[in-house]
Write a protein that binds this DNA or RNA. Structure first.
Length: 219
DNA sequence: AACTCGGGGCA
DNA sequence: TGCCCAGAGTT
């Protein structure tokens, strides 16, 4: 596992690689943020942002989602993929908010995770971004990159990855770190074909050095 | 633990 | 043109 100082250096380097890394989710209130994050499962924020302007113009409150047929909602979010599941979850989630939470978005992760379509990652994003709850959202990119670089352990489960990241990164950098690691994971340290041969972090990266060595052997 | 949903992005 | 996904639910 890397030290705090090493992690700091790595994050700074990644920040220089992707200066454009910043939160792409646009939201004006907790409910819109919740919907946007639910929609973003298995697709990019950029793609979600193509539908949210018209979506949020049409649907302001949970009641608005309950007022239309599910087929209509499906068409409104069709271009993002997985739209049937997501439309069904949003209808169900809106009903829960109206009936059980007085129309308000709950603030705690545990309550958020009871909602349809809201898992651990979505709950962490909403509670931390909308309600300043101390949490780091760990998605597949963040987890993979953290493990490859040695920021956390290989055997760590998601909870342990979260804890390690929160321990090694100053709280005021959690949000930007999340997005830096996502950019790094998506465009550089990719799941299938990481660009180890042109990676400025290779000297620090156990996994990268292992991969380069293996590559030499097979070449 | 493996499977499903799905249009868009990228090789 | 065919792969692969910024997750969550179900079995």
């Amino acid at each position: 596992m890397l030290t705090k100082k090493q992690v700091e250096e790595i994050l700074q380097t990644i920040g220089e690689m992707f200066p454009e890394a910043e939160c792409e989710l646009t939201h004006t209130n907790p409910f819109e943020l919740l919907i946007a994050v639910v929609l973003s499962a298995q697709c990019t924020d950029a793609l979600v942002n193509k539908v949210t302007p018209s979506l949020f113009a049409k649907y302001k409150e949970p009641e608005d989602y309950l007022a239309v047929e599910q087929e209509e909602l499906e068409q409104d979010i069709r271009s993002i993929g997985l739209y049937r599941n997501k439309a069904k979850n949003i209808k169900k989630l809106s009903r829960s908010l109206v009936e059980e939470y007085n129309g308000e978005v709950p603030e705690s992760r545990d309550e958020l995770m009871k909602l349809a379509g809201v898992g651990r990652k979505t709950a962490n994003v909403v509670s931390s971004v909308a309600f300043d709850f101390p949490a780091i959202a760990v998605d597949t990119h963040v987890e993979r990159v953290s493990k490859r670089l040695g920021i956390c352990r290989w055997k760590d489960n998601v909870t342990q990855v979260e804890e390690t990241l929160m321990k090694k990164i100053p709280q005021d950098q959690w949000s930007v770190t999340h997005h830096r690691l996502i950019f790094f994971g998506r465009y550089h340290c990719k799941a299938q074909s990481p660009k180890c041969d042109v990676c400025p972090l290779l000297d620090l990266c156990r996994e990268g050095k292992k991969r380069m060595k293996k590559k030499e052997g097979t070449a």
